[in-house]
């Protein structure tokens, strides 16, 4: 998977879970600017990302994944 394909998959997952259009997703998308992204939605998002990327995230990963940019970094660190 290329970095572009990975980013597209992240954006589509965020879009589907948070109920936003893909156009509304950018690197800065986070709980600070998306009302729907609360603590429960965050766990739903983590589950959706696990399914999309075939990954198992740690509690430490989950804490770090607090924006679209941070999600990409966590996935990148795992070579996904």
């Amino acid at each position: 998977m290329t970095p572009e394909q990975r980013d597209e998959k992240i954006h589509h997952t965020l879009s589907a879970v948070l109920g936003l259009s893909v156009d509304q997703i950018n690197d800065d998308t986070s709980p600070d600017n998306v009302t729907a992204w609360d603590s429960v939605m965050h766990l739903n998002l983590v589950l959706a990302l696990e399914e999309a990327f075939g990954a198992l995230f740690t509690p430490e990963d989950i804490l770090l994944m607090n924006s679209c940019r941070a999600i990409r970094q966590v996935l990148s660190d795992r070579a996904l």
Binding site: L47, E50, L56, F57, T58
Partner: peptide
């Protein structure tokens, strides 16, 4: 974990 439970707190 194998049944889509995610560990929120270790």
């Amino acid at each position: 974990r194998a049944f889509k439970f995610v560990t929120a707190v270790r």
